[in-house]
């Protein structure tokens, strides 16, 4: 017994090093292998507060660019409205009972990263704005990511620029679906995998969200086909996608809340039993 104590006291630095490094290593492995980063994340009031202060100064530097993006979005919406063939006849008399399937919550990006293998954004909406895990995040141009952790006022978003992210997407023209991943090489390019060889793919085709999950509605823009090749097995295409969004300059984003999510989840839970 005495010898054990002596050993511990003699090697206390080394043992402490092993302990601390073990903790750090297990957190690293956990962050690489599971979808959720549970222990340490930037959705808390300390990091949110610091990033918020920085952002309140930094946001002035790209006001002009952000204004142009908003004007562009307004233009698109106006065009949709003016060219819409539906007239007022379709408006229901009592709108209390027509439920919205998706609600949209605007948010501001406090922190953005795009140079590590798994990238996260921090945004200024949280539980008190009824944000939960697995809500989709988009901009006017295309998708950004999925809500990962939430605190009271802040949330982290798992960016589509992440090895862990897999999003159901499809070719707009032929409806053939695949899953969108990232090969960590460039923040402007993503990769669409497992697209059936039966699909007709052309360079420049549009890729949109597939709508097979409850996270994103169908038909939100992702990007265009940059190049495509047959993968090793020979029956699927792997497509390089040039993203619509410039993921390096995100400022204003929208969070999509699927109002049917509770019902969908309980239905899925029932069918699992």
């Amino acid at each position: 017994m005495q010898q054990i104590f002596n050993f511990v006291i003699r090697n206390k630095t080394f043992l402490l090093f092993l302990l601390l490094f073990g903790i750090a290593l297990s957190m690293t492995i956990q962050s690489h292998s599971y979808h959720r980063s549970k222990f340490i994340n930037s959705a808390n009031s300390l990091t949110g507060g610091v990033y918020g202060t920085v952002n309140s100064v930094g946001q002035y530097f790209d006001l002009k660019e952000q204004n142009l993006i908003l004007v562009e979005e307004n233009k698109q919406l106006k065009e949709q409205l003016l060219n819409s063939t539906k007239t007022t006849e379709t408006v229901s008399i009592d709108s209390t009972f027509t439920e919205k399937r998706f609600s949209i919550i605007p948010a501001e990006v406090y922190k953005n990263s795009y140079n590590s293998p798994n990238n996260y954004l921090t945004i200024n909406r949280g539980k008190r704005d009824s944000i939960q895990q697995d809500f989709g995040v988009i901009t006017s141009k295309g998708i950004v990511g999925i809500i990962d952790n939430t605190s009271n006022k802040f949330s982290t978003v798992l960016s589509i620029l992440s090895k862990k992210s897999r999003i159901n997407a499809k070719l707009k023209s032929s409806n053939q679906s695949g899953s969108l991943t990232w090969d960590t090489k460039s923040p402007y390019l993503a990769r669409l995998e497992d697209v059936s060889q039966f699909a007709k793919v052309n360079v420049g085709d549009t890729i949109v969200t597939g709508g097979q999950s409850a996270i994103f509605p169908k038909g939100i823009g992702i990007g265009t086909v940059e190049e495509f090749k047959t993968d090793a097995t020979g029956d699927t295409y792997t497509i390089q996608v040039r993203l619509f969004n410039d993921m390096t300059t995100l400022q204003h984003v929208y969070i999509i809340k699927n109002n049917d999510i509770e019902e969908l989840k309980s239905l899925e839970a029932q069918s699992d039993e």
Partner: peptide
Amino acid sequence: VDMFLDSGGVHAG
């Protein structure tokens, strides 16, 4: 630093 950068335990290690 890890907490701010959402990098798991990379910088701690």
